[in-house]
Simulated scan of single mutants.
Amino acid sequence: MSSAATPSRGHTPAPPSDPLSLPRILCLHGGGVTGDVFKAQARSLIKYLPDFRLVFADGPFFCDPGPGIVPVYEDCGPFRRWLRWLPEHPEIDDESAVEEVMYAVESAKRADEGTGPWVGLMGFSQGAKLSASLLYDQQIRIEKEGKADTDYKFAVMLAGRSPLVSFCDYSQSPALVSAGRISEGFHYEGESPHVLSIPTIHVHGLNDLGLHLHRKMLKQYHDPKAVTLIEWDGIHRVPIKKVDVEPITAAIYKVARKQGVDV
Rank of each mutant, 00 (worst) to 15 (best):
Glu91Met: 07
Pro78Cys: 07
Val37Phe: 00
Leu86Gly: 00
Gly35His: 05
Asp75Phe: 09
Pro60Gln: 04
Glu74Lys: 15
Leu54Asn: 02
Asp64Cys: 06
Pro67His: 13
Gly77Thr: 04
Pro71Ser: 13
His89Val: 08
Asp64Gln: 14
Pro50Arg: 02
Ala40Ile: 10
Phe38Trp: 01
Leu83Cys: 05
Arg80Trp: 08
Ala40Gly: 00
Trp82Gln: 10
Trp85Phe: 14
Cys76Glu: 14
Gly77Ile: 05
Gly68Ser: 02
Pro90Phe: 08
Trp85Arg: 12
Gly35Pro: 03
Lys47Cys: 08
Arg84Met: 02
Val72Glu: 15
Asp58His: 14
Leu49Glu: 03
Phe56Leu: 08
Arg53Gln: 13
Phe56Trp: 06
Ala42Pro: 01
Pro87Val: 06
Ala42Ile: 02
Trp85Ser: 11
Gly66Pro: 03
Gly66Asn: 07
Pro60Trp: 07
Pro78Glu: 08
Leu86Pro: 00
Val37Thr: 00
Arg84Ala: 05
Gly66Tyr: 02
Val70Tyr: 09
Cys63Asp: 13
Asp64Glu: 15
Gln41Glu: 15
Val70Phe: 04
Ile92Glu: 00
Pro67Val: 12
Lys47Ile: 00
Ile69His: 11
Asp58Lys: 02
Lys39Met: 11
Lys39Leu: 09
Gln41Arg: 12
Phe79Tyr: 15
Pro65Ile: 04
Pro71Arg: 12
Trp85Pro: 00
Lys47Asp: 05
Leu83His: 13
Phe79Gln: 01
Gly68Asp: 01
Asp51Cys: 06
Pro67Lys: 12
Arg43Gln: 11
Phe62Trp: 01
Tyr48Leu: 07
Ala57Glu: 01
Tyr48Phe: 15
Val37Cys: 06
Pro71Met: 12
Gly77Asp: 07
Arg84Leu: 04
Pro50Phe: 08
Gly35Cys: 03
Gly77Glu: 04
Arg84Glu: 06
Asp51Val: 05
Ala42Lys: 02
Leu49Pro: 05
Arg80Val: 05
Ser44Thr: 12
Phe79Lys: 03
Leu54Glu: 01
Ser44Gln: 15
Glu74Asn: 13
Leu86Phe: 10
Phe61Asp: 09
Ala40Ser: 11
Trp82Cys: 09
Asp36Leu: 10
Arg81Cys: 12
Gly35Asn: 07
Gly68Pro: 03
Val37Arg: 04
Gln41Ile: 04
Tyr48Glu: 12
Pro60Lys: 07
Phe79Trp: 10
Gly35Tyr: 06
Asp64Met: 10
Pro65His: 03
Pro71Thr: 11
Asp58Met: 04
Pro78Asn: 07
Leu83Asn: 07
Pro87His: 07
Gln41Leu: 15
Tyr73Arg: 09
Pro65Leu: 02
Leu49Asn: 05
Leu83Ser: 06
Lys39Ile: 00
Leu54Pro: 05
Arg53Val: 06
Pro50Thr: 08
Val55Lys: 06
Gly35Phe: 05
Gly35Ile: 05
Glu74Asp: 14
Pro90Tyr: 07
Glu91Ala: 14
Glu74Ile: 12
Asp36His: 01
Val37Leu: 02
Leu83Glu: 10
Leu83Trp: 10
